[in-house]
Amino acid sequence: MKLFKSLLYSFIVLIFISCDRSWHLSELYIQKIENSSKVIYKYDAWGGRDSHIFGYAILDSTDVFDIDNVKPLPFQYFENIPTKRNISGVICEKLDDKKASNKIFMPLEIKDNKEQGIKIKTKIFQNEGFVSRNQGYKRYQFETFKESKDSLFFYNLNDVESLEPEHLDVLKFKKTNIYIRTKSQNLISNISIEDLKLSPKNEIISNIRYDLTPQNKTDIRNFSNVGIFKEVKIRRKIE
């Protein structure tokens, strides 16, 4: 009887754990939309049974981010800096068992909708074509930077990834898919950039992932809040 009760208890606990779908944020970033009360969050969260969700959501700056009540934007990458009127993004088609005979580098479909009064344009690309234009991953340390209205410039960069390190005088990025992480006291630990390039005719040119680290102490407040996602520190609940 004791053995039965023990097995029954274990079974109930297992069901409870398996059915627990509460989400726990692992990453959260925020970006302001210029001349608007709206902000965009980038989130990443894990739930029961290793379930995983991630994406972007538009909220009013007065709202508290709640992972259980967000409506995700329908794409993976931003094409341009979001504005109070227009947001344009890119996503790959849903994966299936079919393998495309030819790689396509133009959008398969372009969808338009509205979210909180903002026009949302989503360009859907073929997986095979999109992935084949991926040009890898690069890591650099930078000495200084400069920011303009639509771009970021990093200077005096040293390659810290390659077996044959290279030195670059400058790297320029369009302010779109840029994510800044911090350590203590607003000091930057890492800047991740998805450098997605499309031609004026919407053809995929390239997509390169960069991770940049500052050589010197760099305050995140030296960067603007527009066109750049900044990490939001998550307060963990004490059980």
Results as ranks from 00 to 15, higher is better:
residue 1 M to L: 13
residue 4 F to V: 13
residue 4 F to A: 15
residue 11 F to D: 10
residue 19 C to N: 15
residue 26 S to C: 10
residue 28 L to C: 03
residue 31 Q to D: 02
residue 33 I to E: 12
residue 35 N to T: 04
residue 37 S to G: 04
residue 46 W to D: 14
residue 49 R to D: 13
residue 49 R to T: 11
residue 68 D to A: 03
residue 69 N to H: 14
residue 73 L to R: 00
residue 78 F to E: 05
residue 79 E to D: 09
residue 81 I to C: 06
residue 84 K to F: 11
residue 87 I to A: 01
residue 90 V to Q: 01
residue 91 I to C: 08
residue 99 K to V: 09
residue 100 A to R: 12
residue 103 K to R: 12
residue 104 I to C: 05
residue 105 F to H: 06
residue 106 M to S: 09
residue 112 D to F: 08
residue 113 N to Q: 13
residue 114 K to P: 00
residue 114 K to T: 10
residue 115 E to K: 11
residue 118 I to C: 11
residue 123 K to W: 08
residue 131 V to I: 13
residue 132 S to H: 14
residue 133 R to K: 13
residue 136 G to H: 04
residue 137 Y to T: 03
residue 138 K to Y: 15
residue 139 R to K: 12
residue 144 T to E: 11
residue 144 T to G: 07
residue 149 K to W: 11
residue 150 D to T: 10
residue 151 S to W: 04
residue 155 Y to S: 06
residue 156 N to D: 13
residue 156 N to C: 02
residue 158 N to F: 12
residue 167 H to W: 12
residue 169 D to P: 02
residue 170 V to L: 12
residue 171 L to A: 07
residue 171 L to I: 06
residue 175 K to N: 01
residue 175 K to I: 02
residue 177 N to L: 01
residue 177 N to I: 00
residue 178 I to L: 06
residue 178 I to T: 05
residue 182 T to F: 03
residue 184 S to I: 14
residue 186 N to E: 10
residue 188 I to H: 07
residue 189 S to F: 11
residue 190 N to S: 11
residue 193 I to Y: 04
residue 196 L to F: 03
residue 198 L to Q: 03
residue 200 P to L: 05
residue 203 E to T: 05
residue 206 S to H: 13
residue 214 P to K: 04
residue 215 Q to V: 09
residue 223 F to I: 02
residue 225 N to I: 05
residue 226 V to Q: 08
residue 232 V to E: 11
residue 233 K to A: 08
residue 234 I to D: 12
residue 235 R to M: 15
residue 236 R to C: 07
residue 237 K to R: 14
